[in-house]
């Protein structure tokens, strides 16, 4: 099917602008939607998405607050839970009139896909969960080991604060518009994975304190869990938990190490996704 901006959707342009949506690849074929995780933007898919461009439309976007998204659209109430981000994904699917799309989400992007698939049956027809974790916190009540404690998340927030100190002041001329220094704007365009410090802190809080374990059971589309080796953020135990909770899901252990196989091992990641596509 062709991917094109739907005229039925009143606010199509607004949605596509808000989430900095870019559509590439083949005009026809089953669409793939790629969602980045915390700390990054859509550039992380630069070595994976093109691998599908020949036969599929590929849709990249930035979560509001990240990358080239519209920062003025950042509504603290809307984005106080991952449901707000999932609602954005549904709006993007509506705006592009996607049907039976394959949603490829990394880390928290995977959880957002789990929520979005349940909000928009028909739009999202399959899920690829790359290094997913439905809950990063340990739960002493039932022995679940997300890998982190509340103190660890506070430590992350301090780390964020330490790295963003002074960031606002440095970027202010860019936002205010500085015609004498166009290189500032250029620098912003070329900068990967930048975000506003207050948004980064809020997104970190929402991401790492969320618990969406109960939402996994509601997934009814074919699902692939891609598990990395030696991933300190999403351990194999967590990946296997996701696999158990999502009925009928497939579990693939990658050789790639770390939390970002789409960056560290794009060929292996793309091959695993392709193998999944061929059977669903």
């Amino acid at each position: 099917m062709a991917v094109q901006a739907s005229t039925r959707h009143r606010n199509t342009t607004g949605v596509l602008r808000r989430n900095n949506v870019s559509v590439a690849g083949a005009p026809d074929g089953r669409p793939l939607v790629f969602a980045h995780g915390f700390g990054c933007d859509q550039h992380v898919w630069r070595w994976v998405a093109p691998a599908f461009a020949e036969n599929h439309p590929t849709v990249l976007f930035d979560h509001v607050g990240a990358g080239g998204s519209d920062l003025s659209a950042y509504d603290r109430a809307r984005y106080d839970t991952l449901d707000g981000y999932a609602a954005d994904v549904v709006e993007i699917c509506d705006a592009l009139d996607l049907r039976d799309a394959v949603f490829v989400g990394h880390s928290v992007g995977a959880t957002i896909g789990v929520l979005a698939a349940q909000r928009a049956p028909g739009r999202i027809g399959a899920l690829v969960l790359v290094a997913p974790s439905p809950c990063f916190l340990d739960d002493p009540a039932d022995g679940y080991t997300g890998g982190f404690s509340r103190e660890d998340i506070d430590d992350l927030l301090e780390t964020l604060a330490g790295n963003y100190l002074g960031w606002s002041a440095a970027m202010a001329p860019v936002f205010m518009g500085n015609p004498d220094r166009p290189e500032l704007a250029e620098e912003l365009v070329n900068a990967f994975c930048r975000t506003d410090p207050a948004i980064a802190e809020h997104f970190a809080t929402v991401t790492f304190l969320a618990d969406h374990r109960r939402d996994l059971a509601g997934v009814e589309v074919p699902t692939l869990v891609l598990q990395c080796s030696d991933d300190v953020l999403a351990s194999e135990a967590v990946g296997r938990y996701v696999h158990r909770q999502v009925r009928g899901s497939r579990f693939v252990q990658l050789r790639a190490t770390g939390h970002c196989p789409h960056i560290g091992a794009p060929e292996e990641t793309a091959a695993a996704i392709r193998a999944f596509l061929e059977t669903t």
């Binding site: 700390g39 404690s149 660890d152 992350l156 780390t159 953020l233 970002c260």
Partner: peptide, 18 residues
């Protein structure tokens, strides 16, 4: 530290590659 590990894996490592 644990928080630094998260920041490294989610932001620094991808940024370094990009």
């Amino acid at each position: 530290t644990p928080g630094g590990r998260i920041y490294h894996q989610t932001h620094v490592a991808p940024l370094l590659r990009l």
